[in-house]
């Protein structure tokens, strides 16, 4: 719990810890409505996102309602 009283999760069932670039990819996938090509295009020149970040984020995104079955 933070000093303001805000409670935050650390671990638990269904809880996945993402790095900052993995989260950036996941946000883009959600923002692109599951359009993988559009998401890749948006982050194409981003210097902090790697192929490994895409793989991790996609594994999580598969559980999102916008997932279209692409990989």
């Amino acid at each position: 719990m933070e000093s303001t009283g805000t409670v935050f999760p650390v671990s638990g069932p269904g809880f996945v810890s993402l790095s900052r670039p993995e989260y950036k990819v996941l946000k883009q996938l959600i923002g692109s409505g599951g359009d993988l090509e559009a998401a890749r295009a948006a982050l194409r020149r981003g210097p902090s996102v790697s192929d490994a970040d895409w793989r991790s984020a996609l594994e999580v995104f598969k559980h999102h309602r916008s997932y279209r079955g692409e990989s």
Binding site: A42, R44, R45, G46, P47
Partner: peptide
């Protein structure tokens, strides 16, 4: 950030 792809320079190493 949404103008990055139109940036004419080399791929940046920092944004």
């Amino acid at each position: 950030h949404d103008a990055l792809n139109e940036h004419p320079g080399p791929d940046p190493i920092a944004l």
